[in-house]
């Protein structure tokens, strides 16, 4: 079970969180034309890479904040966590 540092609450066990996928995905702006390819990429296509990965988690059974977590998908090492509003550096 992972140990995730919630930027709001501190170190917490994974079972307090729910996974939210790739954090680098940006939703296309509302009301703008989006090509099929761009929309497909947004809705379906994920890199599913092995290695360092910025991903979203929600501290569901805690502060309910969505956070950004930089994790190695192979080793599960967590390098950094950010608040929702903080930009991935």
């Amino acid at each position: 079970m992972l140990h995730i540092k919630c930027p709001h609450c501190g170190m917490r066990s994974q079972n307090e969180f729910s996974y939210g996928g790739d954090a680098s995905v940006k939703r296309p702006e509302l009301g703008k034309d989006v090509s099929d390819q761009d929309w497909n990429n947004f809705v379906y296509n994920r890199k599913s890479l092995r290695g360092k990965h910025w991903e979203l988690w929600q501290h569901l059974s805690g502060c309910r904040q969505w956070i950004k977590v930089e994790r190695d998908t192979g080793s599960h090492e967590i390098f950094k966590t950010l608040k929702a509003e903080e930009e991935i550096s």
Partner: peptide, 13 residues
């Protein structure tokens, strides 16, 4: 609720 929180916190802050 999670869905609304997702959009409010991440997409349309």
């Amino acid at each position: 609720l999670s869905h609304l929180e997702y959009y409010l916190q991440l997409v349309w802050p």
